[in-house]
């Protein structure tokens, strides 16, 4: 419970046992800031997600932490080390899955994994790891012939083969089929249970929501919100419930807004409406009565709390792009 409570707060973990401490990080490309004044702390043993649209600065941030780029100002400590200056000491302790798989086309799956295993003192057994990521059948296949999803899974295996304390995953499930995504989530949860810390970037809402202990929503290189998935949606949903419905016919939005239970009414798309209320039961009676009286057919009705997607939309003002 304590960890859950601690995780619920933005920058709860104290620097002593934190896996990652980022303070006022800035990275400029020309006169454009890719990362602006970004601060967050990742506690040991948690799954932390950077969620944001394309171009939000997620990859730049992660690559600074991996030691690929130098920040223009601010500081980043990874496992207590400076990722740039202490790279040689840091690299054996981290696992990295880049957006680009970076695998050798002319080696087989097993050969590539065995090569990476030789870089570490106490590597994971390649045969077992191939089994874990579901590539046993493709062990003798040249990497060139692997599908996009298989390459992604091999890339994940390469990140894990050194038994890292801290794992960076940049868009880990992009290109995987739904089954592989679920299996990957399960695997990442198991890694957390074994004590590993995971920092992942994603533009999939469901991935962040189901996998992460805490989510940082960033856009234009800035931190917009940082909380647990429940915490991010709680603020909106403790007092407000959304009633969404689809109807055929002329719905009078102003008339709906004057219903006693309605706080706000909006129309997201033609025929699709959202009514915010503090008392869903009362509103539903009023709403269905009013629609029935107006002779409007209700084709879909949903009552729910604000979703992470709504929070994201409110914060960034844009839809997630694939």
């Amino acid at each position: 419970m304590n960890t859950a409570q601690a995780r619920a707060q933005g920058t709860s973990a104290n620097a002593g046992d934190a896996a990652i401490v980022v303070e006022r990080l800035v990275k400029l490309y020309g006169d454009k800031a890719a990362v602006r004044d970004l601060s967050f702390t990742v506690a040991r043993g948690e799954i932390f997600a950077l969620l944001g649209p394309n171009g939000a600065g997620k990859t730049t941030t992660v690559e600074i932490l991996e030691g690929y780029r130098t920040a223009d100002s601010g500081s980043a400590r990874v496992l207590g080390l400076d990722p740039r200056r202490d790279g040689a000491r840091l690299k054996p302790r981290i696992g990295v899955m880049l957006q680009q798989d970076g695998i050798y086309n002319y080696l087989t799956t097993r050969e590539l994994l065995e090569l990476f295993a030789r870089f570490y003192r106490e590597p994971e057994d390649p045969t077992r790891l191939l089994q874990v990521v579901g590539l046993s059948d493709a062990a003798a296949t040249r990497c060139r012939q692997l599908s996009g999803g298989q390459k992604r899974r091999l890339s994940l295996a390469l990140a894990l083969v050194g038994r890292p304390e801290l794992i960076f995953l940049d868009e880990p499930t992009t290109g995987m089929d739904p089954q592989a995504r679920r299996a990957t989530w399960e695997m990442l949860r198991e890694l957390r249970e074994r004590g590993s810390t995971l920092l992942l970037t994603t533009h999939f809402m469901d991935e962040a929501e189901r996998l992460a202990d805490r989510i940082a929503i960033i856009d234009h290189g800035e931190l917009l919100a940082l909380d647990t998935p429940a915490g991010l949606t709680r603020e909106q949903s403790t007092t407000t419930t959304e009633v969404r419905f689809t109807a055929h016919g002329a719905v009078d939005v102003a008339a709906l807004g004057s219903l006693p239970g309605a706080r706000m009414v909006r129309s997201d798309a033609p025929g699709s409406y959202v009514v915010e209320t503090g008392d869903a039961a009362a509103l539903l009676v009023e709403l269905t009565t009013a629609l029935h009286a107006a002779g409007i057919t209700l084709s879909e009705l949903r009552v729910g709390r604000t979703s992470l997607e709504d929070v994201f939309l409110q914060l960034t003002g844009k839809e997630m792009r694939e």
């Binding site: 054996p92 870089f119 570490y120 106490e122 004590g195």
Partner: peptide
Amino acid sequence: APTTTTNTTPGAAPVTQTILAQTRA
């Protein structure tokens, strides 16, 4: 130290071993 101890402490292989492996590849 890490809070959980189920993971063995990871480390780099001897540098000659890493270079030999890369050469073979």
